[in-house]
Design a protein around this nucleic acid. Structure first.
Lengths: 119, 119
DNA sequence: TCGGTGTGCAACATTTAGGTTGCACATCGC
DNA sequence: GCGATGTGCAACCTAAATGTTGCACACCGA
């Protein structure tokens, strides 16, 4: 009777509550990478990154797949959506959140403002 | 030069990454309460609850207000919306999250479905 | 088959989170 | 004023999170 059921929402938030892991998640948004590759560019060791990936995987946010001698990690958006649903439930700040999304250029400067119906 | 700027998203997620705090946030969704009142109904002491409220406040999720000899804590949804925006940015699972929200009856059986423009 | 590369433990050290107890102080209602 | 109630702070404890190093093992390619 392995504890294989879906982890609690708190575990998902916990997994996201760390800068390093948040960075990993952001990177993984663009594809699947090996632990070694992910550890290049951060300040901690590969082992530390592996531990973070493990935390993310336990929370259901990440899954891994063996490719020859490498292990590729990739994002699993399902738990992320559970977390979204939870946030929506408490804040109900639906439209304002959407607005903030639009104003968040940060990493998608390709999309022009497009006359965004500014309230 | 006090560190008064808005806390990082990771801090918000961190604050939400604990069952007790998640419970507090859920309670605070229904109004403002004192620390003593919030500590009744949970298994930990008032001091522990106070610490959790402090964590939530540092993350910008909660604010407090003095009322005579009491201190009332209430939810501040703004950071919550930042977190939503972040999740949306990575998962882009907008519609599916909406769906899950609808199927989440859990704590809002009072509000009827009201034919919510289900595109 | 052998060197290079990637992965998987395990032991260990350090810091932080989470919780408790105890007590001092403030405030409200008589 | 005085007891009841609510708050604030500090010391302390324990478990868990985070990170490191070292080494064994697996796999790929020439």
């Amino acid at each position: 009777m392995l504890k294989q059921s879906k982890p609690a929402i708190a575990d998902v938030f916990f997994a996201l509550g760390d800068e390093t892991r948040l960075g990993l998640v952001t990177k993984l948004r663009t594809g699947a990478f090996s632990g070694t590759l992910l550890s290049q560019g951060v300040l901690v060791t590969r082992q530390a990154v592996l531990k973070h990936l493990h935390v993310l995987e336990d929370a259901g946010l990440v899954s891994h797949e063996r490719r020859g001698r490498e292990v590729l990690y990739s994002l699993d958006p399902r738990r992320l959506e559970d977390a979204q649903a939870f946030l929506n439930k408490i804040s109900a700040g639906w439209d304002r959140a959407l607005n903030r999304l639009r104003n968040m250029v940060e990493e998608k400067p390709a999309t022009p403002p497009r006359k965004a119906r500014s309230r």
